[in-house]
Amino acid sequence: MSTRFLDCGDTAFSVEFGSTIAPDINARVMALHGAIAAEREAGRLTGVVETVPSMRALLVFYDPLSTTRAALQPAIEALLVGGQAITARSRRLTLPCCYDDAEFALDLADVAQRTGISQERVIELHLASEFRVYMVGFMPGLPYLAGLAKPLHLPRRASPRVRVPARSVAIATEMSVVYPFESPGGWHLLGRTPVSMFDTRRGAGATTLAPGDTVRFRRISRAEYDALSAEAERAPFDVERFVEASP
């Protein structure tokens, strides 16, 4: 599918790279996101307000009082030609997750039964998955993590839960997510992390993950979970603590 520029009124337009969830499509989204950020840092692309990556498209916001769509689109098209060469910012993080408590792993038995593999193997496969943040959205700080091991691919729960606890680690379709807040949700809950995806005590750095990040999970005991949770209650975690490598 070729790249399309889609109209989103007079303050935004969407650069759509495909209609499906796929690594090459998301990589192109992130490459353009990074290329536009670099241009703006260099003082070019005046009038671009912000860019918002999603799984398969980049939404470009602009100020119609300082530029026009007709002026911006050719400048963005020029970036697409060389855009593939630009590697988007990508940190590697490892997040602790407790799978070993029935209170957290509410759907572990169900997932094991539906996939026909043991509970222990479900956990191993989740731990073996290298995830990439395709998008942060739906709620502030909620990461959509692509790269879930194939045997764990399942549709969402037939009836969503009214209340999914904050920091629940869950899977559905080909993805994993971490809930930033207590909210309704239809994903299968495998465990819980003591690391909040959104901590307002960190101010502008409230979110833990950003689009493009690579994420793995590390298995922790309930005791370690409790110790880390107590620590997080006293003061917010410095995200750097979970970063293995920065660009």
Partner: peptide, 11 residues
């Protein structure tokens, strides 16, 4: 339905 994408004001 679509695969989620960004939402402009007034969409």
């Amino acid at each position: 339905d679509i695969v989620s994408d960004g939402i402009a004001p007034g969409a």
